[in-house]
Structures are given as C-alpha cells and as structure tokens.
Amino acid sequence: MSPQNSTQDPLWVKALVLSLVAAFLVLVLILPLVSVFAEALRRGIDPALEAIANPDALAAIKLTLLTAAIAVPFNIVFGVCAAWAVAKHDFAGKSLLISLIDLPFSVSPVVAGLIYVLIFGAHGWFGSWLIDHDIRIIFAVPGIILATIFVTFPFVARELIPLMQEQGVDEEEAAVSLGANGLTAFFRVTTPNIRWGLLYGVLLCNARAMGEFGAVSVVSGHIRGLTNTMPLHVEILYNEYDFVGAFSVAALLCLLSILTLVLKGILEVLQPQVGARGH
C-alpha cells in the first residue's frame, strides 16, 4: 500500500520511526542471533564442528529428531480431527472446546512438565505401579515426548480451524451428494484446500517441538547421552562454561529456526490467509 499524500507521514517522522524500529530490532533480535554464530566461531570453525560431532551432542540431536518425529504426526492427527469436528459440524460446547484446545499456550512450560511429574513421577499417581512394572516415563524419553506433545498441542488445530471454517462446508456437501464417502471427501476435496495451512501448522509445531526447553527440562533428568535434547544439551554445556560447545549446538538450532522462517515466508506467499492468527 502506498500512502496518499494527504495521509503520508512527513519524512522526518518516517526517518525517526524507522531508526527507532531499527535500533530496537538490532538490540533485541538481530544482535542475539548474530552473537550465537559469533560465539560459536570464536575459536574458528573446527571447535564448533567438533562440539556438534561430540557423541553426547549427536545423541541429543537424535533424541530431538525422535521427539519431533513422534510429536508432529501426533499433532497432525489431533489437529485434523479437531478441525474436521469443529469446522465442519455444529454442536453444543464448540467454543468451549476451541478454548480448551488453546489452553496449553497459556500454561507455563514448567507447569506443563510438572503435571507429568505429578502423574508419572516416582511419587506421582501411577509412580509405584510404573516402578513395579519397570516402566520409566519421567526422566526418560516417553516423558520428554509427552511434555513436547503438551506444549505443541494446539499448533495444527488452531491453524486449520479458522481456515476450514472460512472455507465452509459447501464443497464437502457437494462431494457427499455426488456419492463420496467421508475419507474420499477429506482427501480429494478438503486436503487440497488446506494443504498450505496444514504445512504451516506443521512447520511451527516442528520448530517448537525441536526447541522446547522448559517443559522438557522438568521431565528429562538431564542424563547425558540419554535424555538430553538439543536445547538441554546447550544448557549443560553452557553451565559447564563450555561456551563454544553451547553456542555451536545453539547455532545449529538457529539455522533450523532460520530455515523455519524462510519456509514460513514462502507458505505465506502461497496461501496468504495462513498464519492470520498470531502464535
């Protein structure tokens, strides 16, 4: 949009606003991002690569990928089911359900971890039963995955619900009246209309799943090589004053988030209505 003359800000206002914004973004966003890479490469590229190739780091990378590989499909199944039920049907209590789906976003990540400790921890509801049966959830991989699922829970659903509501039910009704069953209508008519929105939700869900710290930190137990995800590994290295190591793994996560942002930008061009709601 190009502002008209009558409503255009004077040049000095524009310059002032842009300088303030630039200064603010440099201090809050850009310098932190740059500093990660600078700290990682402080002693050259080799120590940075070594830190990433370290067995504990590789184990953390593996665990992070595993966590995302479980949490993201779970999120897709839930999100698609929730969106189908909410956006394509009418029922009592719909808006309550939508609020409940959004709930994990307003819960502190630490509380998200805590609730699973209270249920599955040694002193939790199922603690003694789990110990008797030699099942470990807390301070083990299942707890990490559960906590990750909790914090990423709303991502796909809240992306799809408004999108599918906006698209209405006409096309699905047409498909059904032409003889299609539910799955056919979903895969042949609905999916092509929501694919970019779905991908967008998956992208944000994945970024959060790989980057989650607070919730995972509470349930992980920080066992090196076993229950450390990448963000937890960063914390351990940092607390051991291995700054190059910490920032090297962090730089890897930075690259991941930059990739996320680039893909996100592309999706927003492909389907402008995605991401209409902030996260």
Partner: peptide
C-alpha cells in the same frame, strides 16, 4: 439415508465447485 446413498444431483447456490 445419507446424501451419498440417495443418488440426487444437487446444485449449490454458490456452486461449490472444487476449486483445485
């Protein structure tokens, strides 16, 4: 009976063409 089972042809007000 479901719409699919009835073998009716339905023309929607806004046509509801499959846009893709």
């Amino acid at each position: 009976a479901s719409a699919a089972a009835r073998q009716v042809g339905f023309v929607f007000q806004q046509y509801a063409l499959f846009r893709h």
